[in-house]
Amino acid sequence: MADDTKFLLLFLLLNSSTLCFSTEQDIQCLKSVQQSVTDPNGVLKSSWNFENNTVAFICRFTGVECWHPDEDRVLSLRLGNLGLEGPFPRGLQYCTSMMNLDLSNNNFEGPIPANISREVPYLTSLDLSYNSFSGSIPQNISNMTYLNVLSLQHNQFIGEIPRKFNLLTRLSEFNVAENLLSGPIPSLLAVRFSASNFAGNQGLCGSPLDDCPPSKRRWRPVRIRLHKLNNQSSIGAAVGFVVGFVAAFYFPHCFVCSERLRAYVVRI
Protein backbone atom coordinates (compact mmCIF):
# COMPACT_ATOMS: atom_id res chain seq x y z
CA MET A 1 0.00 0.00 0.00
CA ALA A 2 2.86 2.37 0.81
CA ASP A 3 4.38 1.73 -2.63
CA ASP A 4 1.04 2.52 -4.28
CA THR A 5 0.82 5.82 -2.38
CA LYS A 6 4.33 6.80 -3.42
CA PHE A 7 3.55 5.98 -7.02
CA LEU A 8 0.38 8.05 -6.93
CA LEU A 9 2.15 11.08 -5.47
CA LEU A 10 4.98 10.82 -7.98
CA PHE A 11 2.49 10.41 -10.81
CA LEU A 12 0.60 13.55 -9.80
CA LEU A 13 3.84 15.52 -9.47
CA LEU A 14 5.05 14.56 -12.93
CA ASN A 15 1.74 15.40 -14.55
CA SER A 16 1.02 18.68 -12.79
CA SER A 17 3.49 20.58 -14.98
CA THR A 18 1.69 19.52 -18.18
CA LEU A 19 -1.89 20.19 -17.14
CA CYS A 20 -2.98 22.18 -20.20
CA PHE A 21 -1.36 19.77 -22.61
CA SER A 22 -2.96 16.80 -20.85
CA THR A 23 -6.37 18.49 -21.06
CA GLU A 24 -6.16 18.72 -24.84
CA GLN A 25 -5.00 15.12 -25.07
CA ASP A 26 -7.79 13.83 -22.86
CA ILE A 27 -10.39 15.54 -25.00
CA GLN A 28 -8.81 13.96 -28.08
CA CYS A 29 -8.88 10.61 -26.27
CA LEU A 30 -12.63 10.75 -25.70
CA LYS A 31 -13.31 11.96 -29.23
CA SER A 32 -11.41 8.97 -30.61
CA VAL A 33 -13.25 6.56 -28.35
CA GLN A 34 -16.63 7.96 -29.39
CA GLN A 35 -15.75 7.71 -33.08
CA SER A 36 -14.29 4.19 -32.90
CA VAL A 37 -17.16 2.41 -31.13
CA THR A 38 -20.67 1.60 -32.27
CA ASP A 39 -23.25 3.15 -29.95
CA PRO A 40 -26.66 1.66 -30.87
CA ASN A 41 -28.35 3.11 -27.79
CA GLY A 42 -26.94 6.58 -28.41
CA VAL A 43 -25.57 6.91 -24.89
CA LEU A 44 -22.24 8.45 -25.86
CA LYS A 45 -23.73 10.42 -28.72
CA SER A 46 -26.22 12.17 -26.45
CA SER A 47 -23.94 12.65 -23.46
CA TRP A 48 -20.53 13.36 -24.97
CA ASN A 49 -20.99 16.87 -26.39
CA PHE A 50 -17.66 18.34 -27.41
CA GLU A 51 -19.11 21.69 -28.42
CA ASN A 52 -19.20 22.70 -24.77
CA ASN A 53 -16.11 24.75 -23.88
CA THR A 54 -16.69 25.22 -20.15
CA VAL A 55 -14.05 24.15 -17.65
CA ALA A 56 -13.97 20.42 -16.99
CA PHE A 57 -16.90 19.78 -19.32
CA ILE A 58 -15.74 16.25 -20.13
CA CYS A 59 -16.03 15.35 -16.45
CA ARG A 60 -19.80 15.44 -16.84
CA PHE A 61 -19.79 12.87 -19.65
CA THR A 62 -21.43 9.51 -18.97
CA GLY A 63 -18.81 7.09 -17.67
CA VAL A 64 -16.04 9.69 -17.31
CA GLU A 65 -14.46 10.36 -13.94
CA CYS A 66 -11.83 13.10 -13.63
CA TRP A 67 -9.00 13.57 -11.22
CA HIS A 68 -10.55 16.83 -10.06
CA PRO A 69 -13.94 18.44 -10.85
CA ASP A 70 -12.12 21.47 -12.28
CA GLU A 71 -9.67 19.56 -14.47
CA ASP A 72 -10.30 17.90 -17.83
CA ARG A 73 -8.09 14.94 -16.97
CA VAL A 74 -9.58 11.49 -17.11
CA LEU A 75 -8.99 9.31 -14.08
CA SER A 76 -11.45 6.53 -14.95
CA LEU A 77 -13.41 5.52 -18.00
CA ARG A 78 -16.34 3.35 -16.91
CA LEU A 79 -18.34 2.32 -19.96
CA GLY A 80 -19.75 -0.93 -18.65
CA ASN A 81 -23.24 -2.15 -19.61
CA LEU A 82 -23.93 0.56 -22.22
CA GLY A 83 -24.58 -1.77 -25.17
CA LEU A 84 -21.47 -0.61 -26.99
CA GLU A 85 -20.17 -2.62 -29.94
CA GLY A 86 -17.19 -2.86 -32.26
CA PRO A 87 -13.45 -3.42 -31.78
CA PHE A 88 -11.35 -2.35 -28.83
CA PRO A 89 -11.70 1.46 -28.56
CA ARG A 90 -9.02 3.58 -30.21
CA GLY A 91 -7.30 6.67 -28.88
CA LEU A 92 -6.92 5.57 -25.26
CA GLN A 93 -3.23 6.46 -25.36
CA TYR A 94 -4.26 10.14 -25.21
CA CYS A 95 -5.85 9.63 -21.79
CA THR A 96 -2.39 9.86 -20.28
CA SER A 97 -3.55 10.01 -16.66
CA MET A 98 -6.16 7.24 -16.76
CA MET A 99 -5.90 4.55 -14.10
CA ASN A 100 -9.17 2.62 -14.49
CA LEU A 101 -10.77 1.21 -17.65
CA ASP A 102 -14.07 -0.66 -17.56
CA LEU A 103 -15.58 -1.96 -20.82
CA SER A 104 -17.49 -4.85 -19.23
CA ASN A 105 -20.92 -6.16 -20.23
CA ASN A 106 -20.92 -4.83 -23.78
CA ASN A 107 -20.61 -6.38 -27.22
CA PHE A 108 -17.01 -5.56 -28.03
CA GLU A 109 -15.19 -8.06 -30.21
CA GLY A 110 -11.85 -8.72 -31.84
CA PRO A 111 -8.37 -8.76 -30.29
CA ILE A 112 -6.91 -6.62 -27.54
CA PRO A 113 -4.12 -4.38 -28.89
CA ALA A 114 -0.79 -6.18 -28.62
CA ASN A 115 0.82 -2.98 -27.29
CA ILE A 116 -1.86 -2.24 -24.70
CA SER A 117 0.71 -1.53 -21.99
CA ARG A 118 2.01 1.38 -24.08
CA GLU A 119 -1.47 2.77 -24.62
CA VAL A 120 -2.57 2.66 -20.98
CA PRO A 121 0.60 2.05 -18.93
CA TYR A 122 -0.69 3.32 -15.57
CA LEU A 123 -3.87 1.29 -15.25
CA THR A 124 -4.58 -0.22 -11.85
CA SER A 125 -7.84 -1.81 -13.02
CA LEU A 126 -8.73 -3.33 -16.41
CA ASP A 127 -12.17 -4.92 -16.77
CA LEU A 128 -13.02 -6.41 -20.18
CA SER A 129 -15.36 -9.11 -18.90
CA TYR A 130 -18.59 -10.26 -20.57
CA ASN A 131 -17.77 -9.27 -24.13
CA SER A 132 -16.71 -11.18 -27.23
CA PHE A 133 -13.03 -10.27 -27.29
CA SER A 134 -11.01 -12.93 -29.08
CA GLY A 135 -7.48 -13.89 -30.04
CA SER A 136 -4.62 -14.41 -27.62
CA ILE A 137 -4.27 -12.57 -24.34
CA PRO A 138 -1.42 -10.11 -25.02
CA GLN A 139 1.76 -10.97 -23.18
CA ASN A 140 2.35 -7.22 -23.15
CA ILE A 141 -0.12 -6.93 -20.24
CA SER A 142 2.64 -8.26 -18.00
CA ASN A 143 4.33 -4.85 -18.35
CA MET A 144 1.36 -3.15 -16.66
CA THR A 145 2.97 -3.51 -13.28
CA TYR A 146 0.45 -1.37 -11.38
CA LEU A 147 -2.52 -3.60 -12.15
CA ASN A 148 -4.56 -4.62 -9.14
CA VAL A 149 -7.56 -5.91 -11.08
CA LEU A 150 -7.57 -7.86 -14.35
CA SER A 151 -10.98 -9.23 -15.37
CA LEU A 152 -11.12 -11.10 -18.68
CA GLN A 153 -13.87 -13.65 -17.97
CA HIS A 154 -16.65 -14.57 -20.39
CA ASN A 155 -14.92 -13.76 -23.67
CA GLN A 156 -13.47 -15.88 -26.47
CA PHE A 157 -9.76 -15.72 -25.74
CA ILE A 158 -7.65 -18.61 -27.02
CA GLY A 159 -4.15 -19.91 -26.37
CA GLU A 160 -2.30 -19.92 -23.08
CA ILE A 161 -2.26 -17.51 -20.18
CA PRO A 162 1.11 -15.79 -20.66
CA ARG A 163 3.66 -17.12 -18.19
CA LYS A 164 4.95 -13.59 -17.68
CA PHE A 165 1.73 -12.84 -15.79
CA ASN A 166 3.67 -14.15 -12.81
CA LEU A 167 5.26 -10.69 -12.84
CA LEU A 168 1.93 -9.04 -11.97
CA THR A 169 2.58 -9.23 -8.25
CA ARG A 170 0.09 -6.49 -7.33
CA LEU A 171 -2.93 -8.40 -8.61
CA SER A 172 -5.65 -8.82 -6.01
CA GLU A 173 -8.35 -9.82 -8.53
CA PHE A 174 -7.78 -11.99 -11.59
CA ASN A 175 -10.37 -13.88 -13.62
CA VAL A 176 -10.24 -15.65 -17.01
CA ALA A 177 -13.18 -18.01 -16.53
CA GLU A 178 -15.38 -19.05 -19.48
CA ASN A 179 -12.99 -18.56 -22.37
CA LEU A 180 -11.27 -20.94 -24.80
CA LEU A 181 -7.89 -20.99 -23.09
CA SER A 182 -5.54 -23.96 -22.93
CA GLY A 183 -2.22 -25.01 -21.45
CA PRO A 184 -0.80 -24.79 -17.92
CA ILE A 185 -1.76 -22.05 -15.48
CA PRO A 186 1.21 -19.83 -14.48
CA SER A 187 2.52 -20.97 -11.12
CA LEU A 188 2.04 -17.79 -9.07
CA LEU A 189 -1.48 -17.24 -10.38
CA ALA A 190 -2.30 -20.85 -9.47
CA VAL A 191 -1.25 -20.23 -5.88
CA ARG A 192 -3.06 -16.92 -5.43
CA PHE A 193 -6.43 -17.54 -7.12
CA SER A 194 -9.07 -20.25 -6.83
CA ALA A 195 -10.30 -22.72 -9.42
CA SER A 196 -13.44 -20.66 -10.14
CA ASN A 197 -11.25 -17.93 -11.61
CA PHE A 198 -10.07 -20.38 -14.31
CA ALA A 199 -13.21 -22.51 -14.78
CA GLY A 200 -14.90 -23.00 -18.13
CA ASN A 201 -11.69 -23.36 -20.16
CA GLN A 202 -11.55 -26.97 -21.30
CA GLY A 203 -7.89 -26.79 -22.24
CA LEU A 204 -6.55 -25.19 -19.05
CA CYS A 205 -4.76 -27.51 -16.64
CA GLY A 206 -2.58 -27.53 -13.60
CA SER A 207 -3.22 -26.28 -10.09
CA PRO A 208 -5.84 -25.32 -8.98
CA LEU A 209 -7.50 -27.33 -11.79
CA ASP A 210 -6.73 -30.91 -12.86
CA ASP A 211 -3.15 -31.91 -13.51
CA CYS A 212 -1.80 -31.43 -17.00
CA PRO A 213 -1.44 -34.68 -18.98
CA PRO A 214 2.13 -35.94 -19.45
CA SER A 215 3.72 -34.74 -22.61
CA LYS A 216 3.95 -37.35 -25.34
CA ARG A 217 6.89 -37.68 -27.69
CA ARG A 218 5.62 -37.40 -31.18
CA TRP A 219 7.27 -39.31 -34.02
CA ARG A 220 7.62 -37.30 -37.12
CA PRO A 221 7.89 -38.98 -40.51
CA VAL A 222 11.16 -38.35 -42.27
CA ARG A 223 10.98 -37.76 -45.96
CA ILE A 224 13.71 -39.41 -47.99
CA ARG A 225 14.22 -37.66 -51.27
CA LEU A 226 15.40 -39.86 -54.11
CA HIS A 227 17.02 -38.31 -57.10
CA LYS A 228 14.69 -38.59 -60.04
CA LEU A 229 16.14 -40.13 -63.19
CA ASN A 230 15.28 -38.50 -66.42
CA ASN A 231 13.53 -40.47 -69.16
CA GLN A 232 16.65 -41.11 -71.23
CA SER A 233 18.68 -42.49 -68.34
CA SER A 234 15.74 -44.68 -67.21
CA ILE A 235 15.34 -46.17 -70.69
CA GLY A 236 19.09 -46.69 -71.03
CA ALA A 237 19.31 -48.51 -67.73
CA ALA A 238 16.40 -50.77 -68.63
CA VAL A 239 17.82 -51.66 -72.08
CA GLY A 240 21.26 -52.33 -70.61
CA PHE A 241 19.81 -54.67 -68.01
CA VAL A 242 17.83 -56.67 -70.60
CA VAL A 243 20.80 -56.96 -73.01
CA GLY A 244 23.12 -58.01 -70.22
CA PHE A 245 20.71 -60.63 -68.95
CA VAL A 246 20.14 -62.17 -72.41
CA ALA A 247 23.88 -62.23 -73.20
CA ALA A 248 24.69 -63.86 -69.85
CA PHE A 249 21.98 -66.44 -70.39
CA TYR A 250 22.96 -67.58 -73.90
CA PHE A 251 26.69 -66.96 -73.82
CA PRO A 252 27.85 -67.70 -70.30
CA HIS A 253 31.38 -68.55 -71.51
CA CYS A 254 31.88 -64.91 -72.43
CA PHE A 255 31.40 -63.83 -68.83
CA VAL A 256 32.91 -66.70 -66.87
CA CYS A 257 36.69 -66.78 -67.26
CA SER A 258 37.45 -69.46 -64.70
CA GLU A 259 36.55 -73.09 -64.78
CA ARG A 260 35.73 -72.87 -61.07
CA LEU A 261 33.30 -70.14 -61.62
CA ARG A 262 31.76 -71.89 -64.66
CA ALA A 263 30.28 -74.44 -62.27
CA TYR A 264 28.19 -71.76 -60.66
CA VAL A 265 26.52 -70.75 -63.92
CA VAL A 266 23.10 -72.34 -63.93
CA ARG A 267 21.07 -72.59 -67.05
CA ILE A 268 17.37 -71.92 -66.60
Rank of each mutant, 00 (worst) to 15 (best):
P121M: 05
N166D: 14
S134Y: 11
L123K: 01
Q139D: 12
M144S: 04
R118G: 08
E160Q: 13
N155Y: 09
P113N: 08
S129C: 09
V149F: 14
M144D: 01
V149N: 11
E160F: 08
I158F: 05
Q153S: 15
Q153G: 10
N155S: 10
N140I: 04
S142N: 05
H154T: 15
L126G: 01
E160R: 10
L128C: 06
I161M: 09
P121A: 07
Q139I: 07
V149L: 12
E160T: 09
Y146W: 15
S129M: 04
P113D: 06
Y146R: 15
V120T: 14
F133M: 03
L150P: 04
L152R: 04
L126Y: 04
T145S: 15
Y130H: 15
E160C: 09
L167Q: 14
G159W: 07
I112S: 01
Y146N: 15
F165P: 03
P113A: 10
T124C: 13
N143M: 07
V120N: 02
S125N: 14
I137S: 02
Q139K: 14
Q156F: 10
L150R: 02
S132E: 11
L152E: 06
L147D: 00
N148M: 11
N131C: 08
L150S: 05
S151F: 13
Q156C: 11
P113R: 04
N155H: 11
P113H: 07
S142M: 01
Q139S: 15
M144G: 00
H154K: 15
H154S: 15
F133S: 00
L123F: 02
S136I: 07
Y130V: 12
I141R: 02
S117R: 02
N148F: 12
